[in-house]
Design a protein around this nucleic acid. Sequence first.
RNA 1: GCCCCUGUAGCUCAAUUGGAUAGAGCAUCGGCCUUCUAAGCCGAAUGUUGCAGGUUCGAGUCCUGCCGGGGGUGCCA
Length: 603
Amino acid sequence: MRPRPAWRCSGFAAIPRSHPVIRMSMLRTLKDRFRPILAELVGNEALDKVLDLIRPAQDARFGDYQANMAMALGKQLGRPPREVAAEIVARLQVDDLCEEPAVAGPGFINLRLREGALAARLHAAAEHERLAVPSADHARTYVLDYSAPNVAKPMHVGHIRSTVIGDALCRVLRFLGHRVESDNHLGDWGTQFGMILYGHKHFLDAAAYAENPVAELSRLYRHVRGLADADEAVGKAVLAETARLHAGDEENRRLWQEFMPVCLAEIERMYRRLGVRFDHTLGESFYQDRLPGLVDELTRRGLARQSEGALAVFLEGHESPMLVQKQDGAFLYATTDLATIRYRMETFHPDAVLYVVDHRQSLHFEKLFAVARKLGYADVELTHVSFGTVLGDDGRPFRTREGDIVGLESLLDEAVRRAGDVVAANDEAKPGGPELSPEQRQCVAETVGMGALKYADLAQNRTSDYVFSFDKMLAMNGNTGTYMQYAYARIRSIFRKGNVDAASLVGSGAKILLETPEERALGLQILRLGEAIDQVVADYRPNQLTSYLFDLAGCFTSFYEKHSVLKAESDALLQSRLLLCDLTARTIRQGLALLGIDVVEQM
RNA sequence: GCCCCUGUAGCUCAAUUGGAUAGAGCAUCGGCCUUCUAAGCCGAAUGUUGCAGGUUCGAGUCCUGCCGGGGGUGCCA
């Protein structure tokens, strides 16, 4: 862990609890009110599906929540939808939560929350460390497979997505109370090692290797890669080196043992800087001993058979089979992946295994999952959480083999350097003069730089390609990590300037008032954190959380521009606004933390 | 050939999985700093959601067919 500056806010451990925590989300509460009515109308079977049509309103003009089932029900029951809606509304008991429900348009039921109900929930959130976000109804066990760099190649920009998305999903799932085993499935046994073995034997610069082994190995990798692409003979020699490694050749094993620690240390340095941790780091090499047995079993059970000299598993709906053993007897990554599934099933007994891997491997996973089911793993959720390719500025895919690599480390350095410039400029421009020491600026720059990098990636729908650009990643305005961190720092500044202790404020009995549109909108948005998190999990899409946070920050700055906190018109308003500020800050901090992004108290 | 993804404002991207008048940020234009951080706020302008059909109360979202872009496709990962 990086050292944390002493002036960082240290948490909210001392929050007293005078209100019972509301354990159910607003949405869930509303659904429960609809449940008995709809059960009578549609019966228990279709109930959940119909209840899912109760949603946050898409447009604030229609209220806060809307129920959209009357149209479909009207059709089904052969009655006018508005009549059905009216009947539902007539029987609905939500007086304590909502103002009078309204039927609109073809049969939408619009619900607007009462101020008192909003305030009550905000008080509960204020007194709860997790901001009253309910845990998942049923805790599941997840195995998360992400990052998985090739050990012999330097990490580059292409590794960021898997690492950052996987880490965020890991944090979100854990926050909801799920058990998560994160596993870095390193590429430490494949052809890329044949490359550096071959390179080490023919082209080693011993002095360079002695000084910086990783740099020399990556030079060798690129060099041999180029040769192999141009010359078939070199390609064969590389494969032969790989085969010798797999066969237990003494020298190649010794070299592998020599390469691994330095490569791993290099990778670990990146993870430390990114704040990413894994529960397990079980690379391909870990499974080597399990492959022959697995292939035997596939053959014995009639799942795999010889075809064109290789051993193949044929699958319905697929033209080409999945190969599990090559003509020369070597195993493939499909074999390793199958062995990995087996190991994970036996070791962790997961309900779900998520692979955060770029979309180019989607066919591989389709086949892999199909074979896994044939092997008997039918109940586990196997999901390829695919994401778009990292593209260069020219719009073409970034590929290591093109030699045109932006190394991850220099990328991180550049992000921090640029963040440092912006932090310094901002500090200089403060109304009361600069506030930060050089050490603080450096620390802020690191946090802001990493945050910008991660947020830029997470904010994009993961299925689309990602156009890598320093400027885009490090843009300091719009929906960026920096904007979020800035919003947080501004709030903390209010408490500092007003000499208010947030923790003692919470237990003081102060009331939250939501009399202006800005305060009401902010309060409502604060309460939606749980919904945003649910949306992330529903499709493994962290950008649902960044969108939420951006909206939250927008609500806050609108409020902040319009209403003075420290100079509020009355003491009651002062207290109320401070509570809203504190809730906003904690929600931003929590939301960013779920994305693996830190905040700073001042910037 | 076949399979998958994709096409939304000038640019980069959203859009709660079929909901109401498709939204942000850049860029452009016009307002806001003696007042809690202007990395900001408020407002304006910007669209035949690639094209053509279809499904239904309702389609950017689903189905069909075209067109464009990307990826994958038996012995790399």
